[in-house]
Amino acid sequence: MTQPIGEIISTTSLSFTAQRLNPRGTERPRPVQPPNLGRLVWARLPDGGRVFAVVAFGTTEGLDRGRLAVVRTHGDVVDERVYHEHPQLAEVLRTEFVAVLVGYERETGALFRHLPPQPPPLHYAVYECSDEEARAFSEDLRYLRLLLDTGGPVPGEQLVAAHVREMYRARGEDAAWLEEAARHVGRLLRRDYNRLRAALEALE
């Protein structure tokens, strides 16, 4: 069974925020990172369906927001070794990511690429989509419009580009699909040359 990567700690009709779960059983302590920007993830709905969402932002900070991070690098204790020297970090840091809702699937398996009728429930688990699921979802790219104006800190054209890159990889570097995706982005941004250029440059 696939392992959840996070749990929803805030949810709305447009997006949800999930806290990354600590991977257990790893020998070496290492930083817990959010999933890739643009990655397709999913969560269950109480009626048996699933929502799909695109990772639009990630942060890591102290579990207790009043506790600021302090510098821990010294000598050859750098990067991952900092986590090795301070095993408590795994317990006192929180990594969160925001995912923008882009579609849902009914219990019957029917797939829709627009906002779901309901947000996913609080405390439900979040999973990364398999390459297979990503391939199926990205067959029709009309949902990309939902990523353009999320109101989040990541510019819409960067998020669209990051998502297309993620899907291109999940689809086994399908060049024909990428060409189609680029054309689609071109149509979405045809009235805004600067954003279009930024999106296409990020896709190169």
Binding site: P29, H84, P87, E91
Partner: peptide
């Protein structure tokens, strides 16, 4: 601490 670092809080 050491070879199998882990914290229990």
């Amino acid at each position: 601490y050491g070879a199998h670092p882990r914290a229990f809080l």
